[in-house]
Amino acid sequence: MKFIYILIAAFLSENFVLSKLLGIYPAIDVQNRKYPIVQEGILVTTAVTIMTVLSHIIYTLILEPLNITYLATIVFALVLFLAAQLTVLISKNMGNYNNREISVGQLVVNSVIFAAIFLSINQDLNLLSSIANSIGAGLGYTLVSILLADAIDRIDDEAVIGAFRGVPIQLISLGLMAYAFWGFSGLVP
């Protein structure tokens, strides 16, 4: 039950993009998106989850017992790369996406901030809760990307004052979306 609570919280009421301000750039970086949103979202979720599991295991089994938690950031950098690499391998082997390959770099950009945050907050959580948090964050990111892409499609550029065109209006759209998502707070007890 707690698994679902945490997942929904990270997905909606405490959405990582809108209420924690994390991963905004990949969400607004629409022009450079080489990959369909939903599939990219799935890849990001996978990468973050792999990353969380790996870093959780390394943190609790190696860093903490040896009292070298100050090395967390360095270890994390390597784990992040490994997780991104693994996800790219998985996506290749799935066979579906062969025509369009997501690059490791792209995936790192898209998941670094989510993944990073787990290294620190998940130190207190158990593995299952961490996984719920990662999946929720990945799905939350996907949802916001879809909503924003749709909003951008509907914005009539002609009606927007020149200076606001492009990123400023996207940020403001995200802000309004964040207010709307505030309504979800309390969804989870």
């Binding site: 809108l18 209420s19 924690k20 301000l21 905004i24 606001f164 990123v167 400023p168 209006i169 996207q170 940020l171 403001i172 995200l174 802000g175 309004l176 964040a178 207010y179 505030w182």
Partner: peptide
């Protein structure tokens, strides 16, 4: 959080 988006956008 929402105000951060609006401030940055404006």
């Amino acid at each position: 959080a929402p105000a951060a988006f609006l401030t940055a956008g404006i």
